[in-house]
Structures are given as C-alpha cells and as structure tokens.
Design a protein around this nucleic acid. Structure first.
Lengths: 217, 217
DNA sequence: GTCTATATACTGATAGAC
DNA sequence: GTCTATCAGTATATAGAC
C-alpha cells in the first residue's frame, strides 16, 4: 500500500522512479519529472543538486531495505536442511524482492528492479558504479550459499548460472509483453506469480545440471 | 575480418552500429557518428533521412543474413534423430548467430546482437516495432522445433524458458564484465566460446525440467 | 522551499552553395 | 554527394525574487 507523500521531495523521488523505470534515465527530462510530481523545475535542483544526484537518491532510498530483505530471506532459506529444497528456496530468495510488487517501499520492489534493469542497459556510468557497489556483496553471499548446496560444481559454473538467472529476471522486467506475444497470450509476462514460478523452476533445473564441459558446446 | 568500406554510406553505417551497440540509441548524437565515420553531419541526413532511418538501415543490413543463418542452423539441427542431441543443437542454433563474432557481415553478429539488446532496453518505439516484425517469426519457428523435442511440456512453459534464454543472452551481451567481477576473473564474460558452452548447457537443463507447477513457487 | 527567468550547450533536421 | 551555416527545439543547471 503506497504511503502518502508528506513532502515535495518524496513526490519528486516517486515521480522520477516511476518515469525512469518506464523509459530509462536519459529519455526522461527533469521537466517531465517536475510536471509529473507537481514540483517546480528549480526545486529538483534544490533538493538533489543534479539529475545524477536524483538517481543516486532513488538508489539510496531502496538499496538498504531491499538488501536487508534479501539477507533475511537468504538466512531463512539457509536454515532448510534438505539441499534440494534449500536450493529452490535460495533461488526464490534471490529474486523475490526484485519481482515482488509490494515490499514496503513506495511502489514496490518490482519498479525499482525494473529501473535498475533499464538504467543498467543504458550504460550510465554513475548508475553502473552505484549498482556494482550496492549489489555485488549480497550477490556474492548468494553465490556462496548456492555453492554450499552444489559442492561438486566449479564456482565458475555457479557464477555463470547466477548471471543467467539475473539476465532472465532483468529481461522479464524490461520486456514483459514479449512472453504474451510469443505465446499468443497463453502465458502472461506481467503476472508476477507466474513469472516467479517459471523462473525458479527453470533456474533450479539449470543449477542442478552437471558441470559444464567446455568441449560439449 | 572486416571488409574495407567502399563508400561513405557504409562508413556511416559501420560507425553508427559501433556507437549504438556501445552506448545505445539515444545517447549517441548524429554529430558523434559523423565524427567517428569521417562523414559530414549533413551526409547522414542525405543518406538515411533521419536518425530513425539510420537505425532502420542498420537492421535492414543485418536481419536478412542473420535470420537466414538461423534458419539454416535450425534445419540442420532438426535433422538430428536423437531428441536429446537435437534439443541441444536447436538451442545452439538459436543463439549462435547472436554470439558469433564473425558471421560474414562487418563487425560480426555479436555487435548487432548487442545493439538489439541495448536498444530494446531503451524502449525506443521504432526499434521495438522493427525487432518484433523481424524476429518473431523465426523465434516462433524455434519454439515449434523445441516443442517437437519436448511434446510433454505445455507450450507456455517452452515460451517462458525460451524467453529466459533470450534474457540470458541479452544480459551477457550487455554486461559481459559482470561475470568476471562476480567470479574474481575465474570466468570470462567476454569469451564467446565459454559463454556459448555455459548458456547452452544451462538452457538444455532448464528445457528438460518437467512442467512447471504454479503451486510449486 | 518554491517560484520565474535565464544562461549555456546540445539536439535533429534542413536550405543552399559547390 | 559533400560541405557550411543555421533554425527551432530541448536539455541541465543556476541566479535571484519572494
């Protein structure tokens, strides 16, 4: 449930996140953000200094809670004894906060995840730095947890499959309509529950595959 | 081996593709393209009419040969009798032209695939239309071929897993350095052979998984 | 903190000489 | 087909009134 905006600053943050997640960073002008939030153009500079500063503020607002959430879910998952069940729980914990529509923050985790995916693809330097700093540590924690479930696998294979998992999530957030288009509407890319079930199932199967033999390709 | 440019028009196409694939569509100005290609700013408008026209010309140049290549590889793969081997060959045929560094055209298929991935993420309307028109038919042919290997799977599951496969390829093309970063250099995202082996292996395992049960998520 | 007005730079596109 | 010059539009950022 989105909470009421108490200040102009929050209204700007909310509008900017909405617009950036839809169209990317470069394509959205500060004028559009001003109009959507009801703020004045000058106010944005006053509160955030620059457009980059606004982007940084959006990350600051979300990355703490989101990574805390992922840590909690990872800890819960790691308590599961059975390695098969644990693997699925870890995968689920890894991506749930990115797909969940409501995670306590305004607009839900999916919007921020979509923003990250879109902005990452733009190769905006500032954004790449922020993302790497913020998400690498927690990603490495997940890789360690996966390695514990799959001790026979080379770490490189686990990294590759984790990378593919991130790619699948990112692609689904950026192009949800593609699933519907390729399936004639039978599958629905906008349906978070369906996406989560499909992606966890596919990823677990991929992780369970034996080590990749380079010559086999 | 890149072939020599015989005309200014080709030089512009080549420079534009290089820049778009690196930084996306919106971030690259026509002036940058002019400078990189040695052409005059006015010449770009003369040859391609507009910036959108230039993007369209890049697609026109590549999509024909690339889809022909994918059709050939798909046909070859479909001749394999054993369903297990055939599945791997189809997956390989699906993504090889996008990852291959040299496919006969200037700069290789990987550069054009990276361009598609980056531009797609920008949600440029013109580009989305072109991509859907050009790649949906061949993608549906691959899905049909996969369904033949996996007759027990609901088509929706095959579409979802194909979607994830496209996401993994796209993500790897956009962020190859992420693999090296997460693995401390042990895995190399820029190594096409390694990426191909890893992604085919993981995708085949995902396709072979039983049907996804919605309740299991 | 919020507003107007504006400085400065860059964008895609075009007209017209050569 | 290539050039220069330029138009009209938009961008971010800022200075200063209130």
């Amino acid at each position: 449930m989105p909470q009421r905006q108490t200040s102009m600053r929050e209204a700007i943050l909310d509008a900017a996140e909405e617009l950036f997640s839809k169209s990317g960073f470069r394509a959205v002008s500060m004028r559009e953000i001003a109009q959507a939030s009801g703020a004045n153009l000058g106010s944005i500079s006053y509160h955030f200094g620059s457009k980059d500063g606004l982007l940084r503020a959006i990350y600051d607002q979300h990355s703490g809670p989101m990574n805390r959430r992922r840590s909690e879910l990872l800890n819960e998952a790691q308590r599961i004894r059975d390695p098969e069940d644990r693997l699925a729980a870890i995968v689920r914990a890894f991506i749930l906060p990115s797909l969940s529509e409501a995670d306590g923050s305004v607009g839900g985790g999916a919007r921020f995840a979509r923003l990250r995916a879109v902005v990452m693809a733009e190769r905006h330097e500032e954004a790449q730095k922020i993302i790497a700093e913020t998400f690498n540590p927690i990603n490495l924690a997940f890789i360690d947890a996966l390695q514990e479930c799959l001790p026979h696998l080379p770490r490189a294979d686990i990294v590759w499959r984790t990378h593919f998992l991130l790619g699948a999530v990112s692609y689904t957030l950026i192009n949800p309509w593609r699933v519907a288009r390729l399936s004639d509407g039978e599958a629905d890319g906008e349906n978070t529950q369906e996406a989560l079930a499909q992606i966890v199932h596919a990823a677990v199967a991929a992780f369970r595959a034996p080590a990749t033999d380079g010559a086999a390709a």
